[in-house]
């Protein structure tokens, strides 16, 4: 890419030309960041993860504003009140928003786009859902408001993670 440049002889005849690598060792100091954490999931989220293992999606209801929070939280951030009740959801819902993503983490363009979005659950008000992938659907078929359902990993492969759901697919009649 760069044009080859001719340098003359070194100005200091006793010296020698420095290689780029040698130069870098005194112009930059490199280090890795050894940061490791183990976050407590907490009262509500631990039960959420446990129920994912069982193939169930669970929320918490705020008695004051009647929202069902998914993933569940022990307090409602709008009312600043403790949530009061566990709510098992059928897992079905609608696409609230989505994006067809053509760029990977390393900023490379990818051929098969990744379909990501937010699912609003049946049995919970809008804007109380979760983010996830979509599958078994062509990108051009994805629509806001489209009914979807979860596709679970086989029981023996579930570990108590949001990835226990493989993706959401268009709901079959």
């Amino acid at each position: 890419m760069s044009k080859k440049t001719e340098f003359g002889p070194p100005l200091n005849p006793r010296g020698r030309r420095l290689e780029a690598k040698e130069l870098e060792s005194i112009t930059h100091v490199r280090a890795k960041v050894p940061a490791k954490y183990a976050w407590a999931a907490g009262t509500a989220m631990s039960r959420f993860l446990e129920e994912l293992k069982n193939g169930k999606i669970i929320g918490r209801r705020c008695a004051r504003c009647d929202r069902v929070l998914v993933p569940p939280r022990m307090f409602c951030e709008r009312c600043f009140q403790p949530t009061t009740e566990w709510v098992y959801l059928p897992g079905t819902g609608v696409v609230e928003t989505f994006s067809i993503s053509y760029i990977d983490t390393n900023a490379n363009r990818i051929k098969e786009p990744i379909l990501v979005g937010v699912i609003a659950f049946d049995g919970a008000p809008p804007h109380c859902g979760i983010m996830h992938y979509f599958g078994e659907v062509k990108p051009e078929e994805l629509k806001i408001g489209m009914p979807v359902e979860p596709v679970w990993k086989p029981k023996e492969e579930r570990v108590g993670s949001v990835l226990d759901i493989k993706y959401f697919r268009p709901r079959r009649k």
Partner: peptide, 12 residues
């Protein structure tokens, strides 16, 4: 140690 709560619950 506070494994029973997450940091948001602790602050709350």
């Amino acid at each position: 140690q506070t494994p029973e709560v997450n940091w948001k619950e602790l602050i709350y």
